[in-house]
Nucleic acid binder design. Structure first.
Length: 326
RNA sequence: GCCUCGGUAGCUCAGCUGGUAGAGCAAGGGACUGAAAAUCCCUGUGUCGGUGGUUCAAGUCCACUCUGAGGCA
């Protein structure tokens, strides 16, 4: 009995997909129908002050539905990462469960979704000192550094490319800190090794015709500019933040900072934002496409079909939460 | 009407004296384990404007033709 109860408490609904694909609206509509609360899985919406560029839903758009993991960090947070996201999101989800409501995890940061739905360990915390040493080692001779990885962690080396500095350095950092290869931590989200994931997800994926998606992205960027994205970027630009902070690299802001630096025209910065957003959407699709758990729905004609779509999502969610699905 | 220079990948263009075409950008696909809106890898067949001709062989030479830009009358 206790077992079943715990099982129930681990269930969450997820809505994933590329940027500008109606995830936000869909999640809010679903939340209203099933008495849910929304947990954002978005690596930029966590930052306060990055509202327009990260496409945060306004209070009005949220329609009274509680949103978690939005606006919970200042921009100059140097070390926010997946594992912190996971513990904060896990806490939010538990609170929602405790209220007997349904958590709806929605967002486009694929790794964040996986951190909550696959048994990833993140066992070895980041170590800046070691990372710096290894990074230097890599800069001096990438081939040699990669050779050392191949020797100590052939499995991870086989997965990575020499040029992928971030990952090669991180893998060596893990080895140097723990004495164990990264691959020995045995968490693999392609075919999990049998250990328990933090939560049991029902995954809905939204997609649409590529051309339509790109149109929507372009239009949304234009709308953001009208809503004052430049002013928002200026406000952040005026602060003495380190340009290498994760938040400062976000699409929309980075390109406008380049404009404010005098490196490009405003027009070309806006074009760049659109292009980078389109490429981002493509990468998101690549990420989510390989996830066999996702139930995909075409939302090319979202406006016409949303009632029917929501009916289906509602029904599937209710069955899933009761445990009669699967 | 005449002269000149163009028309080659989605775009901008290379292609020497004939041997069935290649760069940049765009685009597409993939990877992803404490930076993930980040980071990295892979991918170039296209009526060489059209028709005919010369040639063993034509993007390349010739003729005609369509079309764009500029110049001269």
């Amino acid at each position: 009995m206790q077992l079943i109860r715990n099982e129930m408490e681990k269930r969450i609904v997820c809505i994933v997909g590329p940027t500008a694909c109606h995830k936000t609206e869909c999640a809010i509509l679903l939340a209203k129908r099933i008495d849910g609360e929304i947990v954002s899985a978005d690596s930029v919406q966590v930052y306060r002050g990055m509202d327009i560029g990260s496409a945060k839903p306004s209070l009005e758009e949220r329609q009274g539905i509680p949103h978690h993991l939005i606006d919970c960090l200042p921009i100059d947070t140097p070390e926010f990462s997946v594992s912190q996201f996971r513990s904060m999101a896990a806490e939010a989800i538990s609170e929602i469960h405790a209220k007997n409501r349904t958590p709806i995890l929605v967002g486009g940061s694929g790794l964040y979704i996986n951190a909550l739905t696959f048994p990833l360990e993140f066992a070895v915390p980041r170590n800046d000192m070691v990372r710096q040493i290894v990074s230097q080692e890599y800069d001096e001779n990438p081939e040699k550094a990669f050779g050392r990885l191949r020797q100590n962690d052939p499995e991870t080396a086989a997965r990575l490319h020499v040029n992928d500095k971030k990952r090669v350095v991180r893998a060596l950092e893990v080895f140097d800190c723990s004495g164990k290869p990264l691959s020995a931590f045995g968490n693999d989200f392609q075919n999990d090794a049998g250990s328990e994931p933090p939560f049991l997800p029902l995954l809905f994926g939204l997609h649409m015709e590529r051309q339509r998606l790109y149109e929507r992205i372009n239009l949304r960027v234009d709308r953001m500019m009208k809503q004052g994205l430049l002013e928002e970027a200026k406000r952040i630009y005026a602060m003495p933040y380190d340009r290498n902070l994760p938040a400062m690299c976000a699409i929309g802001y980075r390109q406008l900072f380049a404009y404010l630096d005098g490196e490009s025209s405003l027009e070309s910065a806006v074009e760049k934002i659109k292009q980078e957003s389109r490429r981002y959407a493509k990468r998101q699709l690549t990420w989510f496409r390989r996830d066999q758990r996702i139930l995909w729905r075409d939302v090319t004609n979202f406006e016409d079909e949303k009632e029917r779509l929501l009916d289906e999502f509602t029904e599937k969610t209710q069955a899933f939460m009761k445990g009669t699905c699967e």
